[in-house]
Design a protein around this nucleic acid. Structure first.
Lengths: 223, 223
DNA sequence: ATTATCTATAGATCTATAGATAATGC
DNA sequence: ATTATCTATAGATCTATAGATAATGC
């Protein structure tokens, strides 16, 4: 019994409520689209890390994904679409690894301290991916870029929330909205710094040393 | 009266003792090489900022510099050479603007505080250029990249020196070598952050507010 | 003669699509 | 019939160089 109105798939309650850009496809089967795009992203991430976006050809992507150039273009409309899918996948992976491991028990200060440690560890694991986003975001079409930057802000907001909690429960000293937002960005960037200044930092510090120093700097300032 | 040995130009004491990569050229007149390369760099910087390195063609660079594609290749051996010249010029400009304005009088802490303000202001002036380095350094050949990263470290070392002075004259609290180096990188990156997170920061903070907040965070932690 | 510059183009790609083919479901 | 995939290629560039030309100095 078909519904009277074709009803464009009654919102099958996808896992992610993340606002994401809809990339058009010629293929009807949504499951297949998801599967093929996963293949495309997995292949493209590796290629982009190795050679960069511009030096990777659409043919290489298709081949590494396991199908032909023609098929690739059934699932995306342009090379830039692949870059967007890659950036989005990286941010989702990042967010998922964080949410898996973040503990929200204890005071705001304690939760923040733990979050910094987890975040830095995830940054270390995903070094190449974070670097990729720093280097290639500029190559995205404006519209796609907006989504990627918004995603970046959502990740930053995790720290702002914890900072707010710490202020509310008096485990951190009083901070106004501006100070909280700035410090949230600082924490995010100091995690990223471990990846984009690796050439200077890794010879001098282990991840553990780096995390410990930065964490005590940040918390020392806030308590 | 010619020297007996052709003596490859007896080191005419160039202004910059900066270690820099020698880009080979077909043209003999060193002054002309400097002049043309300045034209190339000035043209290329603008193009790279607008469209990125990969989307800029060698023809566009030559045309914007005011000569033909053939002439361009008398002064560089490859497109990547132009990128190296651009990165180097940006770093030199950065360094020069800093050195012009840095005051080294007073305590280490006072000099550091002033240096942060100057540095952030220069970062603001050279936003696009700093962003360019973050985005395109990866496209440099390995050898050129080494020089560019070394230059970046020399700039960072300015802050490390001031921190060391502050520790020595007790205007800052005691810090070991690792803490000094890390803090120097933090200062550099927080300046750059104003450029690469401009999309999030500029709507909320003026440069003055941003500088004041970051400076008091940094110095609050160190005193 | 030597140096600097220009024009013309070799040679190599690369993105995106059209149209053919294979597979699937009515 | 419809959907997914593949092959072949149109059409558009782009880097780098070879060889010709103009300008400069002995």
């Amino acid at each position: 019994m078909k519904p009277l109105q074709p009803s464009p798939a009654p919102a099958p309650e996808t896992e992610t409520q993340e606002p994401a850009r809809d990339i058009p496809t010629e293929v009807k089967d949504a499951g297949l689209v998801a599967k093929r795009r996963r293949q495309i992203v997995d292949a493209a991430v590796q290629l982009f890390i190795q050679k960069g976006f511009h030096k990777t050809t659409t043919r290489e992507m298709a081949k590494a994904a396991g199908f032909s150039i023609g098929t690739l273009y059934e699932y995306v409309a342009s090379k830039e679409d692949v870059l967007y899918l890659v950036c989005q996948a990286i941010h989702l992976e990042m967010e998922q690894r964080l949410k898996e491991r973040l503990k929200f028990a204890g005071t705001g200060a304690a939760a923040l301290s733990a979050a910094i440690e987890v975040f830095f560890e995830v940054c270390d694991q995903m070094s190449d991916h974070i670097l990729l986003i720093y280097q290639e975001t500029k190559s995205l079409p404006k519209e796609s870029m907006r989504f990627v930057l918004a995603h970046e802000e959502r990740i930053t907001a995790i720290f702002a929330d914890l900072l707010g909690r710490g202020v509310a429960d008096y485990s951190l000293k009083p901070l106004d909205r501006a100070q909280i937002e700035l410090m949230a960005h600082n924490i995010a960037v100091l995690g990223h710094m471990w990846t984009f200044r690796r050439w200077a930092l890794a010879p001098r510090f282990t991840l553990e040393q780096y995390t410990e120093l930065q964490r005590s700097l940040i918390l020392g300032e806030l308590t």
